[in-house]
Simulated assay, not measured.
Amino acid sequence: MVRFGVIGTNKITGNFIEGANELGDFELTAVYSRTEKKATSFAEKHGAKHTFTNLEEMAESKVIDAVYIASPNSLHAEQAILLMKAGKHVLCEKPLASNSREVQRMVAASRENNVLLMEAMKSTVMPNMQKVRENLHKIGQVRRFVANYGQYSSRYDAYKEGTVLNAFNPEFSNGSLMDIGVYCVYPVVSILGKPSSIKAEGVMLESGVDGEGSILLGYDDKEAVVMFSKITDSHLPSEIQGENGSILIDKIGSPMNVKIYYRDGSIEDLTQSQTHTMMYEAKEFIELIQSGKTESTINSYENSLLAIEVMDEARRQIGIVFPADNR
């Protein structure tokens, strides 16, 4: 069994626990929250025996082996480094940190303390995305990757009425690119590698974060088009276009249906049967711990750094600045 603590008592943490509970070697033992009331309520709901309101005490605790971090983006680096210095393995929600400088510090802490650090990018470890990678050669020379994700935020109505919640607050390193765009950028760079050029545009909101945007990534013989939004919905799929056919991915953030459309008109269904979408990241993470490894080959340090470097440059061009950038 791998004994987990969680940071964050939000919906995504509950979803992670639900998915991880499908594994026989996951055990939730501790919950951290800034308030004892929230920590206790969440722990009782999910069956954890221990609660913490002090992160240092949690880091030094003997009741956990690993921690899943789902706090605001701006807190990821500080919390993860503290935990890794105490010898805890860390599964950290995407984006891994506010900027590439913080990610580099997190990777260094992982290596120095010989513990596992992995970005909780669920899509890339799901069976359907693995099928995309395994069958990419079938579409011939790749020429374009169109990655699209638009999801109207449940917090946007409040924003339009004058209440700036965390999702639209630059203090927490949030906004459309960080919260939604990362689901597009990460698989693009994990499949195509480092781009030779980056061109970004976006719609800025008065709070100081972006509501939506797009990025054009240039490569020597191909390009990637990334589109993301927190202020509109999109029902367009994502697509990898090759000279012999195209791979259609229904949802880039959580691929449930994947097909190859060949130039001769034939269609090959690559779709795999899948269980809870957040189970796969927990499975990957736990198996790495059990095998004594400190880095995933899928959600690797290289891919996390590539993704955040692309987002850093996109933010620079769009004009998105976080307080974390000046720390």
Rank of each mutant, 00 (worst) to 15 (best):
A307D: 09
K49W: 13
R3Q: 11
M227S: 12
D233H: 09
R263D: 14
L248W: 10
K131W: 04
H276Y: 09
V103G: 07
S238I: 06
V107H: 01
I286D: 00
E284R: 06
E18N: 08
F16L: 05
V90P: 10
Y301L: 03
S304G: 08
R34Q: 15
I260G: 04
Y152L: 14
N10Q: 15
H235V: 15
A70V: 06
E161Q: 13
K251W: 09
Y262R: 13
M227V: 14
L91Y: 10
S33Y: 06
M118E: 14
Y156A: 01
K85A: 03
C92R: 05
E287C: 02
N257K: 07
A167S: 12
G47E: 13
H235Y: 15
T297H: 14
F285N: 00
F52Q: 04
E161C: 10
S273G: 13
T124W: 07
L205K: 08
V226I: 11
Q317Y: 05
T297K: 12
E57W: 14
R315P: 00
S304P: 07
I247W: 00
H89D: 04
S196V: 11
R263H: 15
L136P: 05
L91A: 07
A224Q: 08
S154W: 12
T163V: 13
N99M: 01
L192W: 02
H89A: 00
S110Q: 03
I267P: 13
N257P: 01
K194M: 12
Y159Q: 10
M129L: 14
E287T: 03
K94E: 05
P195A: 00
D312M: 06
A200Y: 02
G253W: 12
N114I: 00
C92M: 07
L216Q: 15
K138Q: 12
N135H: 09
N128I: 08
D250C: 01
G162T: 10
A86G: 12
G202I: 02
D233M: 07
E22P: 00
G319F: 10
G265V: 10
G208H: 04
M121V: 14
M58V: 09
